[in-house]
Simulated scan of single mutants.
Amino acid sequence: MSLFNIFDVAGSGMSAQSVRLNTTASNIANADSVSSSVNETYKARHPIFEAEMAKATHDQQAVGVQVRGVVESDAPLTREFSPDHPLADKDGFIYKSNVNVMEEMADMISATRSYQMNVQVADAAKSMLQQTLRMGK
């Protein structure tokens, strides 16, 4: 594996963790959203990652990661009786998001650490490449 492939792997990891951070931030921002129906209520979203193992086994290339999509959580929404709320339905219920802020904060910390590790890998590869070039002088 060349040092240039390491940049591809670290870059794909940083890109994937950036998507993870953005979806987590969106979930946290919408954690307190309220709606008058189940279909209109914000549902937590999570990215789906796929490691590119097929390329690694056939071409002997570096293994990266790709975001295959973002899916909505199937956790149940919170239904609350609040007849005085302006968004209450005809039965007096409002629907709250299924975002668990504690889980999202833990996910954000994990994504931040993963992003930082990918940056450190890229920096280490850059340093090794620079040292290799200095040896050729």
Rank of each mutant, 00 (worst) to 15 (best):
Q131E: 12
K126L: 11
L3Y: 13
N100L: 08
P86L: 10
Q120A: 15
P86D: 08
N5M: 09
Y42G: 12
A51N: 01
E50T: 11
F93G: 04
Q130F: 15
F7N: 03
A29K: 00
Q61T: 02
M14V: 01
K43R: 15
S97I: 02
T24P: 06
N39R: 15
P86I: 07
S82I: 01
S114D: 02
Y95Q: 11
S36H: 09
K96D: 05
R68N: 12
V34R: 05
F81T: 00
S73Q: 08
V99R: 02
T57H: 09
M102Y: 13
V99Q: 01
R68E: 13
P83Q: 10
H46K: 14
R113A: 15
S73M: 10
K137Q: 02
I28K: 10
A62I: 02
G13Y: 03
K90P: 08
N27Q: 14
D89W: 07
I6E: 10
K137A: 04
V99G: 01
N118Q: 00
S15T: 15
M102S: 09
M1V: 12
N5K: 15
V38L: 08
N98V: 10
G64C: 12
A106K: 07
D8C: 08
Q131G: 06
V19L: 06
E40F: 11
E80P: 05
M1N: 07
V99W: 01
M53Q: 15
N30F: 04
N5V: 03
G92D: 05
D32W: 00
R79Q: 12
A106Q: 08
V63G: 01
L3W: 06
T112A: 11
Q66F: 03
D91Q: 07
G13P: 14
M14L: 02
K96H: 03
K96R: 13
H46V: 11
M105C: 02
D32E: 09
A75T: 04
A31P: 13
D84V: 10
H46C: 09
S73T: 05
S2F: 12
N39V: 15
Q17K: 07
D107E: 02
T41Q: 12
S35V: 10
V34D: 12
Q131C: 08
A125M: 11
N22Q: 02
P76M: 05
A25V: 00
D32V: 01
R20A: 14
H58W: 13
T132Q: 12
L129S: 09
L21I: 00
K90L: 10
I48M: 01
V119H: 05
G11R: 07
S33F: 08
G69I: 00
M108L: 10
A25W: 02
F93R: 04
S37A: 13
Q61K: 11
R79T: 10
S82N: 01
S127Q: 14
L77G: 14
S36Y: 07
L3I: 10
K90Q: 14
K43L: 14
D89A: 11
A31I: 02
A16P: 05
A88S: 08
T78I: 11
N118M: 02
A56P: 03
P83T: 06
M105P: 01
D123V: 10
T41A: 06
T24L: 06
R79F: 05
E72M: 11
R20I: 03
V70S: 03
V67E: 09
A31E: 00
D59W: 03
T78Q: 13
P47F: 14
L133P: 04
